[in-house]
Design a protein around this nucleic acid. Sequence first.
DNA 1: TTCACTTTTGCATACGTATTCAAAATATGA
DNA 2: TCATATTTTGAATACGTATGCAAAAGTGAA
Lengths: 328, 328
Amino acid sequence: MKSTINAKDVAKLAGVSQSSVSRVYFEGAKVSEKTRRKVLAAAEELGYRPNEFARSLITNRTKIIGLVMKGVQNPFYPQVLTQFTAAFKKYGYSVLFVHTNNDEIETEDVETLLNYNVAGVVITDATMSLNVAESFRAHHIPLVFFNRKLSSSDFYSVCCNNLNAGRAIAEYLLMQGSANMAYISGNENTSTSLEREKGFSEVLALHNLEYKKHASDYTYGGGYATALDIIEAGELPSAFFVANDIMALGVLDALQKKGVAVPEQVKVIGFDNIEMASWPGYELTTWEQPIEKMVKETVKYLLSEMAGYTGSAQSVEVEGTLIKRKTT
Amino acid sequence: MKSTINAKDVAKLAGVSQSSVSRVYFEGAKVSEKTRRKVLAAAEELGYRPNEFARSLITNRTKIIGLVMKGVQNPFYPQVLTQFTAAFKKYGYSVLFVHTNNDEIETEDVETLLNYNVAGVVITDATMSLNVAESFRAHHIPLVFFNRKLSSSDFYSVCCNNLNAGRAIAEYLLMQGSANMAYISGNENTSTSLEREKGFSEVLALHNLEYKKHASDYTYGGGYATALDIIEAGELPSAFFVANDIMALGVLDALQKKGVAVPEQVKVIGFDNIEMASWPGYELTTWEQPIEKMVKETVKYLLSEMAGYTGSAQSVEVEGTLIKRKTT
DNA sequence: TTCACTTTTGCATACGTATTCAAAATATGA
DNA sequence: TCATATTTTGAATACGTATGCAAAAGTGAA
């Protein structure tokens, strides 16, 4: 089998010109039904597939989306990854996966994205300096911050409505009769953690209630250690709002270890609704992030920007839902 | 900023030919130190980066590795994904992520990999028909099955030594005084589940011991349901060997729900050593798969095949380690 | 200096596709 | 039927790079 069958080969066999072959494979080009059939038959016979690199070279466009991710320890993100790949596949786009250890995407990875001239970029977990974000803009590469906002917010971002979620959670806990609450935060420089807290504190303030804030880091270990500290300091509240599920699981395990009854002594509510939250061992009440919708919004924007770049910025917020289980 | 600065632009500014610019960026080409400096200075000034697509078009090679994955619900695999991206990055390769829902990779995804003329392919979770695997061979694209073996084993595979692991686990449980054991399998057509069982049963047979096999599916829910069935049928053994950790966690939760004491009444041992196995709520004894080594072996093979294709097949088995915790 | 030899450079070309433009084919209308 | 409008086609070219080949530049010995 010859490894490189090109449009010219197909053209010869089909008895048409290379241009016609090209047109058959180019979305929206005009070809008569007759030549289309001839070309497809010849292509089938030869096992022809258009060379993506030649295409990209001449169109200066690609069908590759760069997806930047950091925290794969949190099961929420792998799920995001697969949903994105599935969603993009529908439109013929493939995903170039970029993993960063640091919070901020490394220059090397930025170069990769630029070298491959990706059609668009999704940043999930990680952050990106303003400089770098601007350089994508200069190249007219659309960019979406997924579940994060850049402080200078003239970039597009898609989030769950964290403010409303925080409010609803506070109201729910109040309704359940909790008065002495605590918030266990994620990494403190993330917009998600800050906004969840903001909504939460707003509502408590309306009821003239104080709450204690404990800084943590969005990891299981962090949640576990933080809860242990709180218990040992004798500062147990009547309810914990934990900034994400994986931390909340750590909190639950710490409570269990210390023999604190959930939800009788302490209520716990998480955020994300990862699969593990529904496990019989946990049955965690939580706030569901509507991943499908968020992904859909992201893809919609990227597709429209790829069709015609505007660089428009917006902060899209999708509403989530409270999932009541056994920890409240 | 002009979006497309090419080698000719750099050449003009540096006062050399386009070929010289090309040679500066081509690994192993000969350029004098003087022109190299001139070119790099000019490139820096213009913000030049070589166009990957033009490169790939002419060299007929790429720096893209296709990574095919199915089960992201099992935390083992996201970890594998990040380790691969990190390892490949060192050598300048990027990862094209392909997610498949079915066990077998879909034709559409195969086409994607071929269209992008990937330099190599890693199949982790999924399987691939012999036909498809052969077509990669026909294109001289090296292929590694990671943690899986194809039945017709003339393709390269890298696994943990599952046979030895199964043996060691049986011996360990025997030493702990268990006699009446049960194996909870993963998907039954996977080489991993079969080989783990084979080693396990070998050793038990040597001691003239029977064991009960329960078919399950490598998911938490599967482990949970299977264990519940066993308990309700009154068939509780003195020890469970569970084919992976995520299932073992389900088993532990089922046992806890039914008030079965672990390890007093039943011992449980898993496989993989995912992060959650070490959580205080579980403390699962398990078998550690040496991911780093497995990844390293895979990358080593792919790099050598990319340097010069041989299509050689081998079944590499890396030894794992028993991690003793509180469930045995 | 001259000559032989090695290294470096530039020219020209090729990779496989999309796209412009003019020519050819086809459809339309009277 | 012919003349005109419309659609389809093919030839030629461009995209940005790598590379074979020959010319140029550099090196070293005598």
